[in-house]
Write a protein that binds this DNA or RNA. Structure first.
Lengths: 104, 104
DNA sequence: TCGCTAATACGACGACCATCGTACCAAAGT
DNA sequence: ACTTTGGTACGATGGTCGTCGTATTAGCGA
């Protein structure tokens, strides 16, 4: 199952980019959902009130910041959190973000 | 020593706003500096290569997100981190951010 | 082959952002 | 009162961001 292009390596993860990726409520909801259910999920399976193209945009921001991993599975893209990579590079950061109360 | 206006209360701190405030390299450097030296510091005492008005902008973003506290002391503004408030609202978040390698 | 599905590509739009320059203000020192 | 100091207010500018619509592509199934 092929990996999509432009995933930063673990060492290349940059804190400002990660924080910016997480600073959008929609993207934050995606990350929470991925953390709650560790099974890789399709882009369309997140109940966000935006169009498909906007969704594509948000997933790209998350991927290029190194927050998520995207793999090609037929016509779908399977998304998963890069928990280990984030933990190695920014210990405790993701857990702290996930621990805060869900966004309204 | 009077507090400046528009400090959000602890309960009103919002994660996206805090993450956005921390996602700028200049502001990140300010926060690191405030964490390293807990004595309240003047806005001008941070060695950032931006003009005064830009500096004012960054400090306002940090204050309105609830990351820092700004008090009026004569002509100066004394800045300090809202560590306890941030810790209560988003446990571990600030420590995780500060623990990561400094920005180049 | 002919759709159907899931997502991307591209272009557009308004909003916001970081930055700056200039003008201004308030406190402190002389 | 004048000057200096530390910072704010305001307006402008160029760039990025979130959003959308439309067109397009890749894979799957009938």
């Amino acid at each position: 199952m092929r990996r999509m292009k432009f995933h930063p390596t673990t060492e290349d993860l940059e804190l400002p980019a990660v924080l910016h990726a997480l600073s959008d409520p929609h993207r934050l909801r995606i990350v929470r959902a991925l953390a709650d259910e560790p099974t890789p999920r399709r882009c369309g399976s997140f109940d966000l009130d935006v169009t498909k193209s906007t969704l594509t945009h948000h997933f790209r921001v998350l991927r290029e910041a190194g927050v998520i991993d995207q793999r090609v599975d037929g016509t779908a893209r399977l998304n998963s959190l890069r928990r280990e990579d984030l933990e190695r590079r920014f210990p405790g950061l993701l857990d702290a973000v996930l621990a805060s109360a869900p966004v309204a």
